[in-house]
């Protein structure tokens, strides 16, 4: 069941568009934000019902996009840019460093469920590469030292 809060947020999305389906990605993001950062089957069914879509139709859309998570994720998502400018300026090093610090590889979640590491295409911060976004905070001009400090913020 969608919570009142979720419903209110989805209704707002609905007010911007002429069809229910048009709000489906917004709705999935809302449910994801309210429920541990990913869309469970239950969440999917709730949204599907609310928007008059079949679960299959909704999941077809959900699984297409990068930012709808249909599998469990950690409390914080590290979106590390793996595109060309970051790659040139040291993405691999940052990735290695994250691995050293957190013990996880791309796509994995730390055992304490704190971080999930998600390589993602270009974040549009190429003038300050390499970069990553943790949740909604952007970190730029990364160096291994800097990464260490940043991760401490999440202790």
């Amino acid at each position: 069941m969608l919570s009142q809060e979720e419903k209110a947020e989805i209704d707002k999305e609905l007010s911007h568009v002429p069809t229910k389906q048009a709000a489906c990605l917004g709705a999935l993001k809302i449910v994801q934000a309210h429920r541990d950062g990913w869309v469970t089957d239950e969440g999917l069914l709730d949204v599907a019902e609310y928007l008059d879509m079949s679960p299959d139709e909704l999941d077809s859309v959900a699984t297409f996009y990068n930012l709808i998570f249909r599998r469990p994720v950690g409390r914080h998502k590290i979106f590390i840019c793996d595109s060309v400018s970051c790659w040139i300026t040291g993405y691999k090093e940052i990735l290695e460093h994250l691995h050293k610090q957190l013990g996880i590889r791309p796509g994995e979640t730390t055992p304490d469920n704190k971080f999930t590491l998600l390589p993602i295409p270009c974040l549009g911060i190429c003038d300050h590469a390499p970069a990553f976004i943790i949740d909604e905070t952007t970190y730029v001009d990364l160096t291994p030292d800097k990464v260490e400090d940043i991760l401490k913020e999440y202790d």
């Binding site: 911007h16 568009v17 069809t19 389906q21 048009a22 709000a23 489906c24 990605l25 917004g26 999935l28 993001k29 077809s60 859309v61 297409f64 996009y65 990068n66 930012l67 709808i68 993602i120 295409p121």
Partner: peptide, 27 residues
């Protein structure tokens, strides 16, 4: 005027893929 935040896919930038994304479909 409304802000519509993408769910992430390069294809969303292609103008017709964008239309499908806006309609809540696969881009």
């Amino acid at each position: 005027m409304y802000v519509h935040v993408s769910a992430g896919r390069y294809m969303c930038g292609e103008e017709t893929g964008l239309l499908n994304a806006m309609e809540g479909k696969r881009a």
